[in-house]
Design a protein around this nucleic acid. Structure first.
Lengths: 221, 221
DNA sequence: GTCTATATAATGATAGAC
DNA sequence: GTCTATCATTATATAGAC
């Protein structure tokens, strides 16, 4: 988050305004004029610095990717520190809101930054899963990649669908309160089984096997 | 899916073209001209039928909502039939692709249809959770609403982030093959605990409690 | 470095002929 | 019911002054 206050050049102010607006309204609904207005400069100056609107987007992508990478690698390399990251976020959520909103858009719209972020998060999760299995704190799952994909989907899905989740829980917006309420049930789901027996799992296995035989793409065991 | 072939009026053809393009590129990036071209009519006729582009969107929302509601209520009222729904989808995924792409956009962009769909899916999941607990096939969770929200997030998140998930699994697109591969690990996660002890859950409880005390919004037990 | 003024293109929407 | 022609607006991007 250093950059918000650290870089005070006009160029940085324009880029930060763009990050805010792209995150808030999406890329195509945000105009160069909106950005210029928010940064208190002329539309011409926006183009002067970034060439095109698409160039501005790339600059935003790169910048958000850099700051996100800073926090992610610093804090999550050690799985135990993930908890500290949550605590830190909960202590000062506003500082991350701008970037989170941008990431939410990037992951959903077709953007290279979204791809990179998902891939990085996916690798990290897979790593955690494998480390946990080796350390004995996690069960060895049948298909680690698929499981990691599901875990990333769960958390990034929460970010992307936060508006709906908040509404479902009767809250105003997806903020600290919603995250706080979801944290324990989320970890609980990974700690205590939801189904009391394997009937549903067996049924799913059957359905999947049937399909694999039909389509010819072999099962994964 | 009946409507694709059932309603052959020009109006329906325009609306179906709009559903396809809105789903593929999003609302704001799709132009009236694009839709007219895809439906092989003039741009003027599009406006003639739907008044405005926004009116066309509402017509699409309504239509997708109706067909989705048809399938959802018919097939998922009985939890046991959810499996049949999966099987049916896997047997003929192309028939649902258009609607799924539209839903994906609707849930992510700010659209009333997206809200309705999420809410309906959320209610259904909560219902299944409570029925399961009563029948004994599912564990009684501490916060059913939060748990249902997480479950919906997991599956809708998969729809929304499908492109990324497919890439992570080394597949071309999020299709039958990806879903087939994810189905068993997904149910497995709800059947066998991922964590081997409650250390992580305890830590999360602690972090959440700390925050609740600090912010004053009471715990939920 | 920053602005104003403007060129150029695309968009949603209208009017009226057929 | 459907089209062509066009308007009015808005968008990105350029040119050149300060």
């Amino acid at each position: 988050m250093r950059s918000i206050d650290g870089d005070v050049t006009t160029r940085a102010r324009i880029r930060d305004a763009a990050i805010t607006l792209f995150g808030r309204h999406g890329f195509s609904r945000t105009t160069v004029r909106d950005i210029a207005s928010a940064a208190e400069v002329s539309p011409g100056l926006v183009i002067h610095y970034f060439g095109t609107k698409e160039g501005l987007r790339r600059a935003c992508d790169t910048h958000v990717l850099e700051t996100a990478h800073e926090s992610a690698t610093a804090k999550s390399q050690d799985p135990a520190k993930l908890r500290d990251a949550l605590t830190e976020y909960l202590a000062n959520p506003a500082a991350y809101e701008r970037e989170l909103a941008y990431i939410r858009r990037a992951v959903v719209e077709d953007s290279e930054a979204g791809d990179s972020l998902f891939d990085a998060y996916f690798s990290l999760t897979l790593q955690i899963l494998q480390d946990g299995a080796r350390a004995g704190t996690m069960r060895q799952v049948g298909d680690p990649e698929a499981t990691a994909a599901l875990m990333v989907t769960q958390s990034l899905g929460l970010l992307v669908l936060g508006r709906h989740v908040a509404r479902g829980l009767g809250q105003q917006g997806f903020g600290v309160e919603a995250i706080d309420r979801l944290a324990v049930p989320a970890v609980d789901l990974y700690t205590h089984p939801l189904y009391t027996d394997s009937a549903f799992l067996d049924a799913t296995r059957e359905a999947a096997t049937t399909l694999e035989e039909k389509d010819g793409h072999g099962p994964r065991h």
